[in-house]
Amino acid sequence: MSGAVGREPVFPTRQSLGLMKSKLKGAETGHSLLKRKSEALTKRFREITRRIDEAKRKMGRVMQIAAFSLAEVSYAVGGDIGYQVQESAKQARFRVRAKQENVSGVFLPQFESYTQDGVNDFALTGLGKGGQQIQRCRETYARAVETLVELASLQTAFLILDEVIKVVNRRVLTKSSEHVIIPRTENTIKYINSELDELDREEFYRLKKVSGKKQRDNAAADAEILAARKKAEAEEAAGGVVAAEPETADILGEQEDNDVIF
């Protein structure tokens, strides 16, 4: 009855049995939900890890190409255009939008990049020489930044998911409704059931006792009445010749017939 984990301190009543049953059901549903959530998150987590790996490899390649196109620019222009580009850039052409994605109740931020068309602040840079290289370099770097944004989005999701999965797993495993709450509740239900059965059995015995007693009482009462009647009959038989003549008993009358005892 008591088991390893003990039971809840409740009175073994039907009400608390109902409570315990709903509690067990809740615990089981919660547990399976948590487990499913943890599985879903882990699946997502693995997918993100794989995509981060891909994105990082891609970033390596893209950044290399971008850095090389900058070398091409410095070859073609033959000087430093950095300052000029910095100063002439007034509006962001490449922008990032943040969204939220819901993965089994966890909000993951997602960054989305888009280019603002029509913003072309340093289109004239390198007008004299190297303009085409500069424009191409800009395109290459825009692609590189795109990859970086993608990677940033993945990495943020990775961190958040990591944290959430840890918490969920702790709830699934450590706090462990599986190993503590559910057995405990089950134990309690078993206890309550057995107590209730016990009560039932006691009640039944008591009832049996009561009915036995009643029977005995009835039998005693019957015997008493019988004795009293016999006595009356005997008295009647003695003084009946005198007394019984004047009034003949109405046989069909309402009065009860005396039992005929032989």
């Binding site: 289109a123 004239l124 007008l127 004299g128 303009g131």
Partner: peptide
């Protein structure tokens, strides 16, 4: 000449 050609080529697609 080189400047003239370059300026022309690089100005395509700009507001010049």
């Amino acid at each position: 000449d080189r400047r003239a050609i370059n300026i022309t080529l690089n100005s395509f697609g700009t507001e010049l």
